[in-house]
Write a protein that binds this DNA or RNA. Sequence first.
DNA 1: GCAAGAGGTCGAACCGGTTCGACTTGTGGA
DNA 2: TCCACAAGTCGAACCGGTTCGACCTCTTGC
Lengths: 337, 337
Amino acid sequence: MNIGEIAKRAGVSRSTVSYALSGKRPVSAATAQRINDVIDELGYRPNASARALAEGRTRTFGLVIPPASTRLTDVQLAFVASVVEAAATHDHDVLLSPSGGDHDRSFERIVTGRRVDGVILMEILLQDPRVDRLTSAGLPFVTIGHVADPAASWWIDVDYAGLITRCVRHLADLGHSDVVLINRSDELVAAGYGPALRATTAFAETAEECGITARTVCCADEAAAGMACVDEIRTRWPDVTAAVTINEAALPGVQRGLHRAGLDVPRDFSLTGVIADRLAEDFHPPLTAADVPAGDMAQLAVDLLLEQINDPSATPRHRMFAPSITLRSSTGARRRP
Amino acid sequence: MNIGEIAKRAGVSRSTVSYALSGKRPVSAATAQRINDVIDELGYRPNASARALAEGRTRTFGLVIPPASTRLTDVQLAFVASVVEAAATHDHDVLLSPSGGDHDRSFERIVTGRRVDGVILMEILLQDPRVDRLTSAGLPFVTIGHVADPAASWWIDVDYAGLITRCVRHLADLGHSDVVLINRSDELVAAGYGPALRATTAFAETAEECGITARTVCCADEAAAGMACVDEIRTRWPDVTAAVTINEAALPGVQRGLHRAGLDVPRDFSLTGVIADRLAEDFHPPLTAADVPAGDMAQLAVDLLLEQINDPSATPRHRMFAPSITLRSSTGARRRP
DNA sequence: GCAAGAGGTCGAACCGGTTCGACTTGTGGA
DNA sequence: TCCACAAGTCGAACCGGTTCGACCTCTTGC
């Protein structure tokens, strides 16, 4: 069931079979027909490892996901699924590699072992050792989020700053004068996670511009933390009447915390942020939020990666996504007591 | 940066380098030292494709997931993450393949191209063409869920029948006499999705045994359907006071539907079923449910697959998981009107 | 003192593809 | 009529590893 067997049965040489399959050199119609008949009869498909070895490309991408310990958010999950789908349309496969934590062996294996032609890195930090590693290994990659020097690499990002600005303005327009940003975890902020930093800055700036009071709180990526976070907000800043969040995973807890505190959304408290559309719609009430276009981002990430693989000397391209904010029903005018 | 280069610099033959690396034949301490020095200096790692070609094994598993269009449930997501992690501890990688929809090219590529040493199949049907395909290709595989002839293949499953039975008895003990099973989608049931069928049967049988009235309704895997489903239940069978579900994805909608109908859980309506623990805990109120041990299942799936790969003639093994039901606060005594 | 066997190393073959150079044959233009 | 060139095919080299058989040397046991 290898190419030699096909060649023998079709009465041609191995190279002719290869050319018939790839079309890189002309093959007579009669020969091609005979070869195809044999292939169909035997259900032959070339061995991927052999092909990869000879061609020097594996037709596989690596997708580096956050470690399994941190549960994937809805946006991330949608992104992963879409990457696999987009890769499939280009006849490529996707190798998963959890990163951070102890799983750096997996990352190393993929990078050094030449298992993949390129890598998509999720959740990168402003200073990310994995980026340096890929650069020194000369392996094409696209990051979700950008690093210190935006012009030097290929990336896709969400304009967190712009979105947060719009969320804050929206709340200010509704009359809120004390708002809080529910950020992602302390550790992530400390590690230099771009979206968290940009959100913080934009939040503070826009609040000042609108003349309203801004508070910020970090919250681990889990429901329990979200609940605790609401308690913290209530006790530290009882005047806060609205929250903006980029922490999807904490949302169920936030919701529960508000409910337990006897606060109705949006009557007593407004809630908005950057949230996957499916999640935002599933909430009750449905959340006014910036819907991250995970599918489009995945598609583009794959396209950029392929572009880079096909032309290693191409100049880096990138793209900032600025999704619009969808008005649903979790934000409302501030009630004047 | 290939094995020949290492050999040259260390002043030995390529085979000696190979043996030094694999330990399959003894190499003198001095030689080994020299080779390792060179390897460290150059940061050499063997090319995965070449190794796969020579060894006849790729050290990669295929994980066949439901297509991207159907959003993964929490249990499924946890399972995927755990499979990747378990594979990593054995120095294996995981190739993702969405299947079921149009993406069977991806499945075919993985199977026929010998890209993987074995496959883990999620969400299989009682009659599943992919199982036949893998069998005829002679590729080791483990299924999550079992097929018609349980003794003939390797699988892991959750004892849906047993769990549903316990859920129903639990509700019966609490005094409920009209209960409904919120099953997964019509299509899945029609396609012969095992868990859905077993749940249906067990539900009906246990209800009869307990002398209570049982209703069953199918519900698509999404929140909106869950909400519609509650409406349907309320209008068709107003006497129903409790629900058992195996449909995680519909839960947010079910919850919202109950809330809109003015029903408090568990005061007016009890809710239980087979649900990922994290999801059950994040609900309000937290759900009394059978917690599917996704992590353990993933670990075992990987172990079984490796066992099969290492000894293709081994007799099939399987395991039925019967998680216990965790009492939380979504079930309560039926209120006698 | 010698055979048996273990330790250590090498060269060559092999895994299953792709690709290059060369060869043959047929065709059209000068 | 002859040449140039395209079409069609083949054999060999190559990609980067692993593994087998053979060889040499040094112990060890009888």
